[in-house]
Amino acid sequence: MSKLTNQKLQDYFFRLRSNKVFEMFVVSVIIFSALMVGAKTYELPPVLLTVTNILDWTITFIFMAEITVRFIGEPRKRDFFKNGWNVFDTLIVLVSVIPIDNSDMAVIGRLVRIFRVLRMISIIPELRTLLNSLLKALPQLGYVMLMMFIIFYIYAAIGSTFFAKVDPFLWGDISISMLTLFRVMTFEDWTDVMYDTMEVYPLSWIYYFTFICLTAFAFLNMVIGIVVSTLEEEHRLQDAERAEAEGEPTLKELQAEIQELKALIKEQHSVR
């Protein structure tokens, strides 16, 4: 009887955590929690401060209840903490229990409550997809960033050598020159920098033109291309997992069936 009751309870919580209304309620609470964090940055009257503290503990209680629902609704309890998002959510909620008062832990408590906004990523599948794609793209992005750093370093050395006497504040050494080049790459009043050097070196526009073409156009487009490609791959993997979970044939299975049909057709033609 106890096992039957536990099974019914698990099925109920499983349906509850998969319910769109429940998910929207949790998202609304997260957004309200973020607004509460912002409200506490203002000078509030003592009455409102007390109300916000009560609401803050209420939000923490709701988050704890939501984690409990997700845990009980998990068909295999040991698989719950194999999911990194479940571990992240649990840690955020548990540390949120730290009381906010005048103790030394008050700052940590406030910071953790700010990070509760990140739970939006674990709740909304589209945000999870974006983050997973970004993490998977990091190795490839690392090589692009390394190449960009090399270009920055070369151009900074050239700029510091030629333009240090023109404007020591912008080109005094290689580190300052790299900051100036970052300003140029982001188009932050870069023409003022160029015109200052052109007064001494009229052909210095070639320096800025080639640097912008390499960084602002070529490398940034490479970064966008890598992220978009990884995002498309992540969507394909999710579609394949969804099709497998729903019992639908995947693309590889369809291709295998097509190959089998082609082989059968060839055999029939050879028999004839």
Rank of each mutant, 00 (worst) to 15 (best):
S160H: 08
P139G: 10
I150P: 06
A164N: 10
R116G: 04
E126M: 10
A156L: 02
I123E: 13
T129G: 15
S122V: 01
Q140N: 14
M105I: 06
I121D: 06
I114F: 13
S103N: 06
L127P: 02
K165M: 12
A106Q: 12
N132L: 02
Y155A: 03
K165Y: 11
M105T: 11
R128V: 00
L127R: 00
I108N: 03
Y155T: 07
I154K: 10
V107F: 11
I154E: 12
E126H: 09
L111Q: 06
I124M: 08
L134S: 03
F169L: 12
R128I: 00
F152I: 02
E126K: 12
Y143Q: 12
A157T: 15
A106F: 08
A157H: 14
M145V: 05
I154V: 14
S160E: 13
L118F: 13
A164L: 09
P125H: 06
M148S: 10
L111S: 06
R110T: 06
P139F: 02
L135Q: 01
G109Y: 00
S133D: 11
V107P: 08
V144Q: 10
G109S: 02
F149P: 04
I121K: 05
L141V: 11
L130H: 10
R110H: 07
G172T: 01
L118Y: 12
Q140L: 15
L134P: 01
G159F: 04
S160G: 05
P168M: 02
L111T: 07
I121E: 09
L135W: 03
T161C: 14
F162L: 09
L141Q: 07
R110Y: 08
I151T: 15
I151R: 11
A157M: 14
L111C: 07
V117Q: 01
P168R: 08
F163Q: 01
I121M: 13
L134G: 02
L130S: 13
D167M: 08
A137K: 08
G142W: 05
F115I: 00
G142S: 09
V107H: 06
S160P: 05
V107S: 13
M147H: 07
A164D: 14
M105A: 15
L138E: 13
F163H: 00
Y153A: 14
T161Q: 15
K136W: 02
L127H: 02
G109C: 01
S133T: 14
D104T: 14
S122A: 08
L138I: 15
R116Y: 06
L146I: 15
V144C: 07
A156E: 02
R113P: 00
N132E: 03
F115H: 01
F163N: 00
S133W: 09
L130R: 09
K165F: 12
M148R: 07
D167T: 11
A157Q: 15
L170K: 12
S122K: 01
F162E: 06
E126V: 14
L111M: 14
L146E: 15
R116T: 10
M148Q: 09
S122H: 03
F163C: 00
